[in-house]
Simulated assay, not measured.
Amino acid sequence: MSRIAYVNGRYVPHRDATIHVEDRGFQFADGVYEVCEVRAGRLIDERRHLDRLDRSLSELRIVPPMTRAALSVVIRETVRQNRVRDGIVYLQVTRGIARRDHAFPDKPIPASLIVTSRSADPVKRDKAADAGVGVITVPDNRWDRVDIKTVGLLPNVLAKQAAKEAGAKEAWFVDAKGEVTEGSSTNAWIVTADGIVVTRPAEHGILRGITRAVILDILAAAGLKLEERAFTLAEARAAREAFFTSASNIVVPVVKLDGAVVGDGKPGPVVSRLREEFYRFAEASA
């Protein structure tokens, strides 16, 4: 079966899905996106993802392309037409199509909306997480507003490629202070020798991850100690456990950092518990 994409009001074959050459997302990365997991035919944390989408659009002063209820219908129909039971749904909103000029168009234009969905193998994902993965570190050279989930991801692309070439799963950004900010497409966490879970606070320096929010709920319910603060690369290297989180990967143990073993080189009890508990705390909607 060929894949289907939703593009500006139409469901079209994925291979024929196109945007105008002067769409501002293409010209200026003037747009935002979201990725939501589909598990057993249900959307995971849709409400939180759409809340974050609304915030991103507001920060960039982009008028939503349709009502939230209508967008939910489009998302579900795209998942349905692609027959995705386990996988992801991707949505992207840009400021729209206008003559190329850095400033916003003088007259209101409709925002562009693209929605796609594809299947993924949850068994394969879990198998990788069961063994743990490697992470490398790279200098953080991104703009200051990474809390907005924009499509301007070139530094992230280069970091992810560096990780791939190094045989690692992810790259963590490290700022000028020697502190880990986040991954190229994930939030970063460590567990100290004292059993304290540490992650950077969700301010302008990192993206407010949806999976991150669920993990905070699990930690609170389990009575595990949490510190929302910056942690240094040296702390990460000395950590008992490390892991990263994202909508497409959920919770992934980090067993190597820049080639050095983290902890005992195996997924630890904290990250294992978080993985086991995740779907009990995440919101699943039909």
Rank of each mutant, 00 (worst) to 15 (best):
R3F: 01
N8E: 14
R10D: 13
Y11L: 14
H14Q: 15
A17E: 10
I19W: 04
I19E: 08
H20M: 11
H20D: 14
V21G: 12
G25I: 09
A29Y: 04
G31R: 06
V32F: 05
C36Y: 02
R39T: 05
A40V: 03
H49E: 10
S56L: 05
L57E: 01
L60Y: 13
L60Q: 04
V63P: 07
M66P: 02
T67D: 11
T67F: 08
R68H: 11
S72D: 12
V73Y: 10
V79T: 03
I88L: 14
V89P: 02
V93A: 03
R99H: 11
H102A: 13
A103W: 03
F104L: 15
F104W: 12
F104D: 00
P108L: 02
I114N: 10
S117L: 06
D121F: 03
P122H: 06
K124A: 11
D126I: 00
K127R: 14
K127I: 04
A128F: 08
D130S: 13
G134I: 02
G134T: 07
G134V: 01
V135K: 01
D140M: 10
R142I: 12
I148W: 13
V151I: 15
L158V: 15
K164H: 15
W172G: 02
V174D: 03
A176K: 13
G183L: 06
S184A: 14
T199A: 10
P201K: 07
P201S: 06
E203V: 13
G205V: 00
R208T: 07
R212I: 01
L216E: 04
A220V: 09
A221Y: 07
G223L: 09
L224N: 02
R229D: 11
F231E: 04
E241C: 09
E241D: 07
F243K: 03
S246V: 08
S248G: 14
S248I: 10
V251I: 14
P253L: 07
V255E: 02
L257R: 01
A260K: 08
V261S: 03
G265N: 10
G268S: 07
E277N: 13
Y279S: 13
Y279D: 13
R280H: 09
F281M: 05
A284T: 10
A284W: 08
S285W: 02
A286D: 15
